[in-house]
Design a binder for these strands. Structure first.
Lengths: 145, 145
DNA sequence: GACGTTATTGCTATAGTTCGCACTAGCCAC
DNA sequence: GTGGCTAGTGCGAACTATAGCAATAACGTC
């Protein structure tokens, strides 16, 4: 994590956190792994790449901290398992309750929604990662029959 | 659950399910308990009111079934625990990542969002219960300082 | 009302996640 | 560079939620 280490360190400082070796290892693993990763994958990656062992509970705690800081997005999939990924750019998930398939999309109507929430309720919504449940076209077709 | 039992029974039949005494007890508990309830609360309520004991796993399975049928809404709160409630009318949750406070609101911009999702992705979104993360006004004020 | 099919239950085992506590190590001030 | 405060870590236990399997009981049919 050479190039954006400063950004991360800054964010850590701002929230009163510290940059420990374990946290750096988790960050590096998250940065290397493509797309959504499970806790196990992140833990394994840390074990394989980093020098020293990191406790599983530490991985969980660091992921929670990074999510709280907004650097990482947590996402509860259809199968129940939670996955994590770098918050690169805003994208959203359409999660089919029929087949469990998830689809990543960009949604423009969310801007209007965010404005409504802020105007009417004084609430600043974090719309970078939103999971929307429903039925995909395929499942509705097969249910018609 | 006298008055809407027929509606529930109908929905059960339609999805090929059966109305067991345990399921009826869970339904009654959900109906009695106000607002969001945890699995433990529901289980305790069933134990206290109903005659016979219901296994915790049965409560979980029934809640899942009811959620799948759309009669009950599941909601993952800030503290991690999942809560359940009757799907009365569509309402949404603003979940503050700062103080953990949740606020129930009605959001009109979601209609536009649902239309966009269906038009662009052929996906029929279930917008009856949506949790939006962010920061409430109070937390932003105290963070300014 | 009796029968057969099969969804459902209870129990137990298991996976996944969080918590408590003593110890360690970042970070800041000097 | 040294010292102190406290966030963070590791370990294990506790907790939440799910899955497998044999036994049971709803429901439709006769």
């Amino acid at each position: 994590m050479p190039h954006n280490q400063s950004r991360v360190t800054e964010a850590l400082r701002a929230s009163g956190r510290r940059l420990t070796t374990q946290r750096a290892q988790v960050l590096a693993a998250l940065h290397d792994l493509p797309g959504h990763s499970t806790v196990d994958q992140i833990h394994a990656r840390v074990r394989d790449c980093g020098g020293n062992e990191v406790a599983l509970s530490t991985v969980y705690r660091n992921l929670d901290a990074l999510v709280a800081m907004g650097l990482v997005a947590a996402f509860t999939g259809a199968s129940g398992g939670t996955t994590y990924e770098w918050t690169a750019e805003a994208h959203h998930h359409l999660l089919c309750d029929g087949c469990g398939h998830t689809q990543e999309v960009a949604l423009h109507a969310l801007d209007a929604l965010a404005r409504e929430v802020q105007r009417d309720h004084g609430f600043v919504a974090d719309m970078r990662h939103l999971a929307i449940h429903g039925r995909c076209a395929g499942c509705r077709d097969s249910e018609e029959r």
